[in-house]
């Protein structure tokens, strides 16, 4: 006797795709948090590097420690290299965190899903959904193999303030009156004959306590510009600049101070050389 409607043999093997159990989700979340702690640790390392550098710069500027400019440059370069490595790890961790966030969001949207039972097992066999592992692997691979990866990392490192400052300082130690590479086409930088002016544009004296306007990037001697502005908002003293400035737009400009100190030290060294010839 033939029975036409005999169901196929039930496939009770574990399907490729299964809904996540609450347990797995919890483990996953814990893992993400642990990675996030690493990010926090990186940030605190970055803060302490910044403090070290600030202290060092304060020291070399305050004590006029420029007999050995080569040492100062090496200090900057070594720090620059470790900073770069740390920033790359931070970049990768942040990317990982973004992926984890995406995954958690995806999972949250899927829940609740019916747990797999014998009666709905076939449904899971038929489903062609991406498993969590596959999803993570795909996103991580995408990140690692992205043709933009190197460019993105460079951009990420370059836009870090501390990295910028350190890079600029290393540059200024070599060439105290040269414009920074990114400033070379900038009309707002006070230059004459391709050289950065180390003088306050109002008193024409060499900077002692330079401050930079965050409105227009022009640099002034603190006491002179403060006397000029008093408690008013005034137009920037530089000819042709329409920036409107008040005292609170001024920030101390350590890079300019470093330029002045290095320039003076190099001049002294040159004078000494001339005298000994």
């Amino acid at each position: 006797m033939e029975v036409d409607d005999t169901p196929d043999m039930l496939d009770i093997s574990v399907p490729r795709y299964l809904p996540m159990s609450q347990e797995t989700l919890k483990t996953f979340s814990a893992m993400v948090s642990a990675r996030e702690d690493n990010l926090g640790r990186i940030d605190s390392i970055l803060r302490s590097i910044k403090q070290d550098i600030d202290k060092y710069v304060e020291f070399i500027i305050g004590e006029n420690m420029f007999e050995n400019i080569g040492y100062t440059r090496d200090f900057m370069i070594v720090n620059l290299q470790s900073l770069e490595r740390i920033l790359i790890s931070k970049y990768e961790l942040e990317n990982w965190k973004a992926i984890a966030f995406e995954i958690r969001n995806n999972l949250n949207q899927q829940i609740p899903e019916d747990p797999a039972t014998l009666s709905n097992l076939q449904q899971y066999h038929d489903a062609n959904d991406e498993t969590l592992n596959e999803f993570i692997r795909r996103r991580v691979d995408e990140m690692k193999n992205s043709p933009e990866k190197d460019k993105n990392i460079r951009e990420y490192v370059n836009k870090n303030d501390l990295y910028q400052l350190l890079k600029n300082m290393a540059f200024v130690i070599e060439k105290p009156t040269d414009p920074l590479p990114e400033e070379q086409d900038d009309d707002d930088v006070a230059m004459a004959g391709g050289v950065i002016s180390l003088k306050d544009p109002m008193s024409l004296h060499t900077f002692k306590e330079p401050v930079k306007s965050k409105k227009c990037d022009h640099v002034f001697e603190k006491s002179v510009i403060e006397e000029y502005l008093r408690n008013e908002i005034k137009t920037c003293p530089v000819a042709g600049c329409e920036g409107r400035l008040a005292k609170f737009d001024l920030r101390s400009d350590d890079l300019m101070l470093l330029r002045v100190k290095v320039f003076e030290a190099k001049q002294q060294a040159d004078d000494f050389e001339i005298e000994t010839i």
Partner: peptide
């Protein structure tokens, strides 16, 4: 105009300018 305070005079303008 560069010699007029109400117009384009700025303290950074030098004798040379």
């Amino acid at each position: 105009s560069i010699l007029n305070e109400e117009q384009d005079w700025r303290p950074a303008i030098t004798i040379k300018d």
